[in-house]
Computed example of a mutant assay.
Amino acid sequence: MTGIKGWLYILFLLFSLIFVGITHQGTMVGDYLFRTIGIPPWSEAATNHGLHYSVIFGIVMLIVSGNLTIMYFKQHYKKYVGRSVILFCIIFIYLYPILTEQLYYLVNVNKEGVKVVDFLEKDSDCMYGTQEDIVKIQCTIRLINYGGQNETIKIRPIFREYGNSQGIWSFIEVQPQEITLLPRSNIKYNIQFESKPDAKIVEFGASGNTNYFGVEFVKDGQKKEVFRR
């Protein structure tokens, strides 16, 4: 029979797994908690590079909670306790993004508008090239509709450059495209965008590809930006 101490160790282990687990959005709960209490999760906070403090803290918690759980249950169950705890951790981390996505579907099933649409960085990238005074952009974007009905919405990619206020993305304005997202869907779309004409574009003449971008959603006067990095 599991005592109070045993349940506390199990809860500590579950919290540690949730802390370091990667959601379907590619985010980590530990990063969110660090930011909530005013601690940057990265040593280079402006660029999300360097030492990942929240991951280091989470791994330490996971090791401690795992060892406490194993040592406690070894007193009651002699065989396979260590293997069982390790196997549980592996299965939980593997299923965690699936569980978080299904939870979002459940919570938002009766909601609509920009609040139920989302952008995932996974499998998303953009290629761009300059043609005279415009930039043509071909994007592969993974979009989610958590709601239970079609959502016709305007979207456009958002590009940012670290510490470069004079880069091409600081002044070009990408024109939005309208797209209909199926209910409870997680689909990869190929969408072409263009910027508004601008004389500066001729001067810079940028071309290339990137997976460092976000997405702006607009519907019925409401706007939502998703840029997780």
Results as ranks from 00 to 15, higher is better:
W7K: 07
E132T: 11
Y189L: 00
H24K: 03
K74T: 08
F193H: 01
G214M: 07
F193E: 00
F217C: 01
I172V: 13
S165Y: 15
N209C: 10
M61Y: 06
I201H: 05
I201N: 06
G129K: 12
I137S: 02
P97W: 03
I63C: 05
I22N: 09
M28V: 15
Q102E: 13
F88D: 03
Y96D: 05
M127K: 14
D133A: 02
V226E: 11
M1L: 10
E161N: 12
F217S: 05
I201W: 05
T152M: 09
I187H: 12
L181V: 05
Y96M: 02
L62P: 03
S185Y: 00
G214F: 02
L51V: 13
L120D: 06
Q138K: 13
K200W: 03
G205N: 11
I158W: 02
E161P: 07
W169R: 06
S65R: 01
D125V: 02
Q75I: 04
H49N: 14
L103G: 13
Y128Q: 03
K122Y: 09
L106T: 14
L106Q: 14
Y72P: 04
I141V: 09
L68K: 13
M61D: 04
R142C: 07
W169Y: 13
G30Y: 06
K188T: 13
L51R: 04
F204W: 10
Y104S: 15
I187R: 11
F15D: 08
K188C: 09
R83C: 13
K223M: 02
Y104E: 15
I10H: 04
M71H: 15
W7F: 12
P157T: 06
G113I: 01
I10C: 11
C89S: 12
I179S: 04
D220V: 02
I10W: 07
I39E: 01
H76C: 08
I56C: 09
N67E: 12
T140H: 12
L87R: 00
I10D: 08
Y72I: 04
F227H: 02
Y77L: 15
Q177M: 06
E151Y: 01
F227I: 09
I4C: 06
L14Y: 08
F92C: 06
S207M: 13
T27G: 08
E132W: 10
G167E: 05
L8M: 15
